[in-house]
Amino acid sequence: MTLTATTRSSMVTRIIPDVLFDVRRPQRLIERSVMVYRRSPMVIFSGFFEPLFYLLSMRVGLSSLIGDVEVGGRLVPYAEFVAPGLMASAAMNGAVFDSTMNVFHKWKHARLYDSLLATPLSAGDVAVGEIGFAVLRGVLYSGAFLVTMLALAMVQSPWMILSLPACALIGSAFAAMGMACTTFMRSWADFEYVPAVTLPLFLFSATFYPVSSYGDWSWVLQLSPLYHGVALVRAANLGEFSIGVLGHLAVLVSVTVIGVAVTARRIETLLLK
């Protein structure tokens, strides 16, 4: 029965965004972003510097005050300890900025998504495409950060190359979550609350000091998606992987999937009514 077959396939696409069946369509949105930024490369370029300034500040300042810290039974200069944390945080901050302010502008002011939905693109394509670009941009910055660490001889293991996919995953988790939250925002005033979430995450995700410093409170770290990202990048830098890595990966992947699904659903209910 062809009728039931089509009905069933549409039931499936209602539950799993049908974007999973064709990845070419979301790419069109990435193409659009590239087209936009090609004209203002400075916007992209200047984004490299903020994480680098943080890294240098840690190196010349805190690292010489603190000296070495103990991580996993070995002593590491503070700057090298904190660098993976900064790298992961930069991936988070970039993704959040792209998926909140930028997306809100395109949604409410430029009405971009209304015009996209009139084409063969679907709500899922829009969600994945926008998140995809945020990730791409984040990986670019992470790459630059990694090169700087190499230049300053702060990389400890060749496995550090894996920090790039790890940062891509951090980026996609936060971009997906950020975009999902953005679909609930009513006005620009709501964006005041974004730093209320990202700042505590930045400061309290074992970014600046080892898990052991948290003492009895270390379980709270598990609630921070950024902590899982920091743990991955740190493991890559040391080249020491434990079974826990799988758990960190699972958390970030789940956050991404939930974020994409919520975003696609919200676009559908808000724009396709």
Partner: peptide
């Protein structure tokens, strides 16, 4: 609230947290 929140967070996160590492050196 925003103007207080941010410095407070930094006070706790950097002042106390990183401070513990610094003062140990």
């Amino acid at each position: 609230a925003g103007a207080l929140f941010q410095p407070l967070m930094y006070l706790l996160g950097i002042g106390l947290g990183v401070g513990a590492l610094v003062d140990k050196a």
